[in-house]
């Protein structure tokens, strides 16, 4: 009972860890390179979810402050939001770079499957 209570209290973080596991498994175990990139993106999103859920305060407003004296606990924590904001844009550029690499690999070997790729490189060496 205590365990279930803790899981429900931390449901965002638990979901983030599960998503991280799914993404990691896809990155490692898929043989298709495009699916590997999808898994990597899922891992990225999981980290962002964990970070952003740490800054949330129950019943608080978005961090756009009003004029005059400000009660700090009336707004959510702006630091995780800033970190995630930069992270999202960087994750897009990382996936664009890996997709460009995939295009070059296809141009050279004609496949994006890892096992076939190994077979064709061996054939080329022979």
């Amino acid at each position: 009972m205590d365990l279930i209570q803790r899981i429900l209290e931390n449901r965002f973080s638990v979901t983030a860890v599960i998503l991280f596991g799914i993404g990691f498994a896809n990155l490692m175990l898929q043989y298709n390179l495009v699916k590997k990139v999808v898994g990597f993106n899922i891992m990225d999103s999981a980290v962002f979810l964990l970070l952003a859920s740490q800054g949330y305060i129950e019943g608080a407003m978005p961090p756009i402050v009003a004029e005059g004296a400000v009660e700090a606990t009336a707004y959510i924590n702006p630091i995780p939001s800033g970190l995630v904001l930069t992270g999202i844009v960087v994750s897009v550029s990382v996936s664009a770079f890996s997709l460009a690499l995939i295009q070059r690999i296809y141009h050279k070997y004609g496949t994006v499957d890892l096992r076939e790729l190994v077979m064709r490189t061996e054939k080329e060496e022979d």
Binding site: F48, A52, Y56, P62, S81
Partner: peptide, 12 residues
Amino acid sequence: WVLLESPDLAVT
């Protein structure tokens, strides 16, 4: 992201 009160993140 909208439910977590971060509209910047939602838009991005």
